[in-house]
Nucleic acid binder design. Sequence first.
DNA 1: GCTATCGGATAGTGACACTGTCTATACCCG
DNA 2: CGGGTATAGACAGTGTCACTATCCGATAGC
Lengths: 205, 205
Amino acid sequence: MAQLSTTSGIPVATIKYYLREGLLPAGERQGPNQSLYGPEHLRRLRVIRGLLEVGGLSIAAAHQVIDAIDSDLGLSHTFDIAQRTVSPQIDGAALSPEAVAQVDAVLSGWHVSPDNPGRLAAARVLQTFAELGQPDLSGWVPGYAAAALAVAEADLDEIDARTDRESKTEMVVVGTVLGDALFAALRRAAQEHVSARRYPAPPNP
Amino acid sequence: MAQLSTTSGIPVATIKYYLREGLLPAGERQGPNQSLYGPEHLRRLRVIRGLLEVGGLSIAAAHQVIDAIDSDLGLSHTFDIAQRTVSPQIDGAALSPEAVAQVDAVLSGWHVSPDNPGRLAAARVLQTFAELGQPDLSGWVPGYAAAALAVAEADLDEIDARTDRESKTEMVVVGTVLGDALFAALRRAAQEHVSARRYPAPPNP
DNA sequence: GCTATCGGATAGTGACACTGTCTATACCCG
DNA sequence: CGGGTATAGACAGTGTCACTATCCGATAGC
C-alpha cells in the first residue's frame, strides 16, 4: 500500500478513505493484515482523481459513475447514468413554462426524452437569464445547440472507435465528465482568440 | 427587508449573510436600524443566486465576478477576470509538456496568451486522459475546438448586440459563467439525440 | 525477538454556506 | 403613549464534505 501511495502520489490515509467509501476495490488479501494492490488499483485511483479534481464530482457521484463503469449495462443505459450523475438535480415543476418552451424550440427535431437532464438544466439556465431581464437570446442559443450537436457527434465517434466493451464504457463515463471540462477550457481560449481578432487594440483608456 | 426576502424567495438570514460578505450592497440608510432596498437589490440578488446555483460558483468567486461587473474596466479586462475566476487554478509547472503541446497543436493559429486559463485547463484534461492510457484523441479534440470557436463567436455576437456598457459587461460575466452550464446541458440533450439516431434499438439484452 | 508496517475502526479537522439567536433600537397602530 | 413587530448588526451554531490523524492488535521481515 505504501507503494501504491507513492506511485500515485495520494496519501495512504486518503487511499484508505476511498477503500472505505467503496470507490476503490479492496486489494487481494494475503493475510489478515496484508493486501496486494496491482496496476488496476493504480488505474482506478487515477480515474477517481480525474473525476474528483478535473471533473469536480463529489465522492458520491464518483461512486455511482464508477459503478456504471464496472457493471455491464448497455451503452444507452450507461450514458443515462453518467448524465444523471453529472447533471444537477432540477425540479421540473419549478421551471417556468416559457423557459422550457424556449429549450424545446431549440431542440425541435431532436430525439430527446422529456426528462433528459440536459433539457431541464438548459431550461434552468434560460430561466435565470429571463429573470435577469435578458430579453432575447434567439441569436445566441441556437449557436450553442449547433455546437453541442457537433460535439455530441464527436463524442459518439470517439466511443465507436473503441473496440472492447470495457474501453467503450469507460469512454462514455469519463468522456461525459471530462468533456464538459475540456469544452469549457477550449471555450475560454476561443473567447480570447475571437476577442483579440475583433478588437485588435484592447480598450483600456 | 422582509419584502426583499419574500419577493426574492431568499431567507432574511441569507440576505444578511450576503450583505456581510459584500456580495450585496447595503440599502439606503434611513436610520440606525432601517434601510431601503430597491429593485436593483432584487436584481443583484438574482444575479447572485444564478451565479451560485446555476453557475456553481463559490461565494468568493461570485464576489470577484460581481466586482468585475461593477467596476468599469475594458471589455478585455472584464473577460479576463471572469475567466480566471471561473476557471480552476492550475499549476502550469505540474503539467506534462506533452499535454501542453497537444493543446497548443489544436490551438495553432489562434491568438491565445500562454497563461490563458483555458489553455492550461485543457492541458490538464488531456493529461488526465493520457494517464488513463487513452492513446489518441486526435479525432476527438479538434471537433471540440471547432465547436468552441463557434460558441465563442456566438458569445461575442451576443455581447456586441448589447448597446450600453452596463449590459455588455453583465453579459460578459454572466455569459461566461452560465454559458458553460448551458452548453453542458445542451450537450447532454445532443448526446441522447445522436445516440438514439445511431442506435435505434437500445441494446439491453 | 524486535521494530516497522499493515488493515481496520474511530474520531477529529478545516472549509463552506448558511442559519439561529441575541440586543438595542425604531416603526406603526390604536 | 404603550405595546407588538420589524430592523440592523454581531456572533455563535449547524450540517455537509473531503479528507486526515490517531489508535489498536497483528504480522512481516530481519
